[in-house]
Design a protein around this nucleic acid. Structure first.
Length: 432
RNA sequence: UCCCGAGUAGCUCAGCUGGUAGAGCAGCCGGCUGUUAACCGGCGGGUCGCAGGUUCGAGUCCUGCCUCGGGAGCCA
């Protein structure tokens, strides 16, 4: 295989003769001169062919190029103000590697239904490439953040027995002679066990929810990162969250500027994302929502409308803490100052993107936890190992979960979470 | 599951109080030596989501169904 260059490597090579490969985006011709926009995932390149300067076979090949034909071009790198990107390739030779006819996604408008039916091909578009690169940066920023702070990655099981909150919202599958297994909707309970072993841990993997959600904020399969820290209380948990979110955003602003520009993302709101984030108790939030015209009542969970209304009041993510125990999960620690509430918090992203984090201090009192399990009629046997964590050296600890796709959608400024993952899984999408 | 909305050419859509199907783009053919979603000329392209009903006549009106999109609930 001959040595070749990726498009991103070409700008410093002006004057040199190189080989490059890629896929055709568009072609244009003015009779005896031809232009090809080539992309290879690292960048885009304009290739110029002059009929009199290339072999007949190469000129003939130019005529057979169609959208998404893959081709190899040999030519001279040349700086030219007329070329998009400032550098173009004057072709000496062109070879078709893979023909393409009638590519379904044309450079015109398409509806989302059509695009998602062709998701495997839509991924090649500029916007989708930019989103994929931002997502990659978000994931790397997450891993680096925890690595630098000496957290240990613990991979939690995807197949689990009956555990978690409500089994009706889990995907079920046969599991040999052990009955039904469920796809995990959280790694949190396992990561709590690991926190007692390793101190600061996190899990990062796919999560599954069988809810029949039909909104721009929901997927049935999504990626979630869940840190859990021994000896952190709810307040320390919130400080970790704001530092975490701020570092992810800063990293994208620093290293994915061109992708955000490609997505036409206004980065002003992102630049404001710095600690400290505003904090408001659930109770104060209810009062505030009422003054803003909402019919919100104490005791109800915040709905999408309430979250958006509240988040609009701030220029950065807002933390809402200490919700009523009745609307929250059994494992959240009771608030000693007001037992009607628990020591938890959500982080609401600005610009209407909603909840990107849900977290809490965990109930570390054996009897109180057992009481909650019984009150919610959860299978006590299934939670015996979880109760053990409170039996053998119980410890103050807290953690949270951040939804990767919601975070990516917010940072990219895209309207629908489905574009934030390569192959989204929703109520009606299992293919491709 | 509930509430809205949409299904017409490969794609995006138009089609008026009912009169027998239209545009742009894509594709194909031809022209052009600097194009930027190039441009100019020409050509082909339809089970109007499905089934039934009203009517002399239905893309258009009525009923049912199907598919998809948005929202609610649930949550990250």
């Amino acid at each position: 295989m001959p040595d070749f260059h990726r498009i991103e490597e070409l700008p410093p090579l002006a004057g040199q003769t190189v080989i490059t490969r890629g896929w055709v985006m568009t072609t244009r011709s003015s009779g005896k001169i031809g232009f090809v926009m080539l992309r290879d995932g690292t960048g885009t390149l304009q290739v110029v062919l002059s009929k009199k300067d290339v072999p007949e076979a190469a000129w003939d090949g130019f005529g057979r190029l169609a959208q998404e034909t893959s081709a190899e071009v040999t030519g001279t790198v040349r700086a030219d103000a007329r070329a998009p990107g400032g550098v173009e390739l004057t072709a000496a030779e062109l070879r078709i590697l893979g023909p393409s006819a009638d590519f379904p996604i044309t450079p015109k408008e398409h509806g989302t239904a059509f695009l998602f039916e062709h998701r495997h091909l839509w991924l090649r578009s500029r916007r989708q490439v930019a989103i994929a690169r931002v997502r990659h940066e978000v994931v790397q920023a997450i891993r680096d953040f925890f690595y630098e702070r000496h957290f240990v990655l613990v991979d939690t099981p995807i197949l689990t027995g009956a555990i978690g909150e409500a089994a009706g919202h889990l995907f079920a599958t046969e599991y040999f002679d052990l009955g039904t297994a469920y796809l995990a909707q959280t790694g949190q309970l396992y990561v709590e066990a690991a926190a007692a072993a390793l101190g600061k841990v996190y899990c990062f993997g796919p999560t599954f929810r069988a809810e029949k959600s039909k909104t721009r904020r929901h997927l049935t399969e999504f990626w979630m990162v869940e840190p859990e820290v021994a000896w952190n209380d709810s307040d320390a948990n919130m400080r970790l969250q704001e530092e975490f979110v701020s570092s992810i955003v800063a990293r994208c602003l620093d290293r994915r500027e061109s992708e955000l520009a490609e997505l036409e993302r206004d980065v002003k709101p992102l630049e404001a994302v710095r600690p400290p984030f505003p904090r408001i108790s659930y109770t104060d939030a209810v009062t505030k929502l009422k003054t803003l015209g909402s019919d919100m009542a104490w005791g109800r969970d915040l709905g999408g409308d309430e979250e958006t209304l509240l988040a609009k009041q701030y220029d950065r993510p807002v933390m809402v803490f200490n919700y009523p125990a009745a609307v929250k999960a059994f494992y959240m620690k009771e608030n000693p100052a007001d037992p009607r509430t628990v020591l938890n918090n959500d982080v609401l992203a600005p610009e209407g993107y909603g909840e990107i984090i849900g977290g809490s201090q965990r109930e570390d009192d054996y009897d109180k936890l057992l009481g909650r399990i019984r009150a919610e009629k959860l299978p006590e046997d299934a939670y015996s190992w979880y109760l053990d964590l409170r039996k053998y050296g119980t410890f103050v600890h807290a953690g949270f979960g951040l939804g990767v796709e919601r975070t990516v959608a917010w940072i990219c400024g895209i309207p629908h979470i489905r574009e934030a993952i390569a192959f989204p899984r929703t109520l009606y999408k299992l293919w491709p």
